[in-house]
């Protein structure tokens, strides 16, 4: 190879690579709107993005997996945590996590109420961007839960029936079906609840649920309408605020942080199954 040939190689390969790159960039611009639901970028979302930047969030957290690696990824956070929870969390994170336990704590950012709701709107927009299904299984903030469905590839998981370990056909025991609902409802119960004794995540542990439910409905101060354990569990799913578990990390102003929409997103049959499953947690 002569010096001249080497130079031609350098220039030609650079130009060809740059040309392909530019063409793909143009094509990406054609698709950005659809992939990112650009029509949903409301002024609120834009202000929320400014809040995200103003408070330097990306130098601890990641979004789309980009940022620093010192705090949890927030790409899908609004799929795991309701607005009421996130609002209360951003007012004072120390009410939710203990620095001595986790050795890390988010400093209180002194956000205004408007900044908080804008930020949540932005994060919610982020959570709906089509990013090839990443993360392949949910990234949790705390706790340890392994819903079998997510161990498989997302594509396969959504197409095929759930993994071998969770029976979910109509002939199966309703309690087994309920366990499947527990793992696959949206948002999944496992995102906030553990069934291990003493493991309180964003929601309280469900270990010993039956025993506690009996004590709660027997107490005079119980404000709800349930007559029995099954009734109490059902009430907790469809009307989470009917009875509030004590603690600043679970509710504020008489409203539970638990998502309110299960009454609609789950079928009556699924709720029956879920109750049957949860009623096994003595």
């Amino acid at each position: 190879m002569t010096n001249r040939q080497a130079r031609v190689f350098a220039i030609a390969s650079t130009l060809i690579a740059a040309l392909i790159f530019l063409i793909l960039t143009l094509d990406s611009h054609r698709q950005f709107g659809e992939l990112t639901n650009a029509e949903n970028i409301t002024p609120e979302v834009t202000r929320g993005k400014d809040v995200w930047h103003k408070y330097n969030c990306i130098n601890c957290h990641t979004l789309f997996g980009e940022g620093a690696y010192y705090a949890p990824d927030l790409t899908k956070i609004t799929k795991h945590r309701g607005e009421a929870y996130l609002t209360a969390y951003m007012r004072d994170p120390s009410k939710f996590y203990d620095e001595q336990t986790h050795r890390r704590l988010m400093p209180t950012q002194d956000l205004s109420e408007e900044e908080i709701s804008d930020l949540i709107a932005f994060l919610d927009w982020v959570s709906n961007v089509d990013n090839q299904g990443w993360p392949p299984r949910p990234i949790m903030v705390t706790g340890a839960a392994v819903p079998t469905e997510f161990v498989a590839d997302t594509d396969e998981a959504s197409a095929a029936p759930a993994g071998d370990t969770t029976p979910v056909t109509a002939e199966d025991d309703p309690r087994a079906q309920g366990e499947y609902v527990y793992q696959t409802a949206s948002p999944a119960c496992t995102a906030c609840h553990s069934t291990q004794p003493g493991v309180d995540m964003a929601g309280p542990t469900l270990a010993g649920l039956v025993t506690r439910a009996q004590a709660i409905i027997a107490a005079e101060s119980y404000p709800g309408e349930a007559q029995d354990v099954e009734g109490y569990i059902r009430e907790s799913i469809v009307a989470p605020s009917a009875y509030l578990v004590p603690g600043d990390m679970y509710s504020a102003g008489g409203t539970s942080f638990m998502p309110q929409g299960y009454g609609e997103s789950l079928t009556e049959e699924q709720i029956d199954q879920l109750v049957a499953y949860l009623a096994t947690l003595k």
């Binding site: 190689f9 392909i20 789309f64 090839q132 990443w134």
Partner: peptide, 26 residues
């Protein structure tokens, strides 16, 4: 020259590895 050529063949289109999972085309 050869190294520069190799750097750019790989480097320019290699930008794509930053475009994983961020909401750009597949």
């Amino acid at each position: 020259y050869v190294i520069v050529g190799l750097v750019f063949i790989a480097g320019i289109l290699g930008t794509a590895h930053h475009y994983y999972w961020v909401g750009v085309p597949q």
